Amino acid sequence: KKKIKIYIENENGEKKTIEIEVEGDIDEIAKELAKKYNVKIVKIEP
């Protein structure tokens, strides 16, 4: 498992940072999160 930080922006332009532990393809997981929460991924840090 890797701990990563995902910087997101919602439709109101509010920026947030999510810190999660992931296993597998980080890009795939980030895309799923973006779709699920309707946010834009700004940056992903390993």
Rank of each mutant, 00 (worst) to 15 (best):
E32P: 00
E11I: 11
G24Y: 03
T17C: 12
K35A: 09
E28S: 08
I4R: 01
T17N: 04
I8L: 13
I8T: 09
I6G: 00
I20G: 00
E14L: 08
A34H: 04
V22G: 06
N38I: 01
E14M: 10
D25K: 04
E19M: 07
K16L: 15
Y37E: 04
D27I: 10
E23N: 09
N38S: 05
P46Y: 15
Y37F: 10
P46A: 12
I29S: 05
N12M: 12
I20T: 03
K43H: 10
I6T: 00
I41G: 01
K35D: 07
I20K: 01
I8K: 00
Y7V: 12
K3E: 02
K2C: 06
K31E: 09
N12W: 14
V22I: 12
E19Q: 08
I4L: 08
N12C: 12
K2M: 11
I4S: 01
N12F: 14
T17E: 07
K31Q: 11
E19T: 11
N38K: 08
E9M: 09
I26S: 05
G24M: 03
K15M: 15
E32A: 12
I29L: 11
I20W: 07
N10I: 07
K1E: 04
A30D: 01
A30V: 15
I20N: 00
V42E: 07
I4M: 10
K2N: 10
K15C: 05
I41A: 04
Y37C: 05
L33N: 00
I8P: 00
K40W: 06
N38E: 05
E21T: 07
K1R: 12
N38H: 09
N38Y: 04
I6H: 00
E28H: 10
N12V: 11
Y37P: 02
A34S: 10
Y7R: 04
T17Y: 12
A30M: 15
I44Y: 06
K35T: 07
V22L: 10
E9G: 02
I4Y: 15
I26G: 05
E19I: 13
P46F: 15
I26Y: 10
K31P: 01
E45A: 04
E45D: 03
E11V: 11
P46C: 10
E23S: 12
E19W: 09
T17I: 14
K16E: 12
N12G: 08
K43F: 10
E21R: 03
N38F: 04
A34Q: 08
I6K: 00
D25A: 05
K15E: 12
I6D: 00
K5V: 13
I18D: 01
V39A: 14
I6L: 09
E45I: 09
K31R: 14
Y7F: 10
K43W: 14
E14R: 05
K1C: 10
Y37L: 14
D27C: 15
I8Y: 15
K35G: 07
I26R: 02
D27F: 13
E21F: 13
N38P: 02
E28P: 05
V22R: 03
E9S: 05
G24V: 03
E11H: 12
E9N: 02
V22N: 05
V42Y: 05
E45R: 03
E45F: 08
L33G: 00
D25H: 05
I18R: 00
E28M: 11
